[in-house]
Design a protein around this nucleic acid. Structure first.
Lengths: 123, 123
DNA sequence: TTTATATATGCATATATGCTCATGCAAGAA
DNA sequence: TTCTTGCATGAGCATATATGCATATATAAA
């Protein structure tokens, strides 16, 4: 049996192999706040239901039951996800009587989403 | 007490309020396969550790322990995440002896990532 | 008023996810 | 050969997440 107790995380003792490169990257690295926001933005777009909602709202202003009908997903599920998108300020809501109409609330989402589509549909 | 048993999902019976809009969106809607790929791509980018890895590799070719050192995250965690990125063909690996060097394996990721950064750092 | 409808939301739950720990494995050093 | 090193990976755990159910809320109709 090989004893492993000696090594553990010596790589953290050595730190890294290419110190120059690591230092260079460290200089360019954004703050944790910025990186967290970037990750959060991608994460919100990283769910099939929300992806479809965004795509739909890219085309038309729709109410909750429209979206539910379009995607074949329960009103509850859509409502829950719309809240997530609202909290991220990606969609906004307009009330017309009992009906809640949703639209995109972020110009950048278009280009971001289309960039994602382009990535997937490339050769 | 109000009885709710009568209604349930009548909204699915009615289907939707704006049939025209829904039909229009349906025409434009991509296939589930495409939408799933889009969502998966965003999901992979939607984790802080992976976001940082991508950013780092945008700047330099790095080995596993470089990345671990740079981000202050264990070698194991980095390795696990690199596998995720490998499985999505977002990074590729070059072996130099015991050392595994990683680079980005997808030109589109640059623009996608920078679009995300732009989204976050806007006013 | 009472009833119906469109949406929102708290709770429970099943599944997914990210990390640590331990260890496997391959390449080089001793 | 044996030991060390850099990386990969499976198991287990703790947290996160997406959805269904039941119900609350608000608006409108009857």
């Amino acid at each position: 049996m090989i004893k492993r107790s000696k090594r553990k995380n010596i790589s953290f003792g050595v730190l890294c192999i290419n110190k120059g490169r690591v230092a260079a990257v460290k200089k360019q690295m954004k703050t944790d706040v910025v990186m967290t926001k970037v990750a959060q933005t991608f994460k919100v777009l990283g769910d099939l239901t929300r992806t479809k909602i965004i795509f739909a709202l890219l085309e038309e202003e729709l109410c909750v039951c429209d979206i539910a009908s379009l995607l074949g997903i329960s009103q509850s599920a859509i409502s829950h996800q719309l809240r997530v998108l609202r909290n991220m300020s990606l969609v906004k809501c307009r009330k017309d009587g009992k009906v809640a109409y949703y639209t995109l609330d972020d110009g950048h989402i278009n280009s971001l989403f289309e960039e994602g589509l382009r990535h997937v549909t490339q050769a």
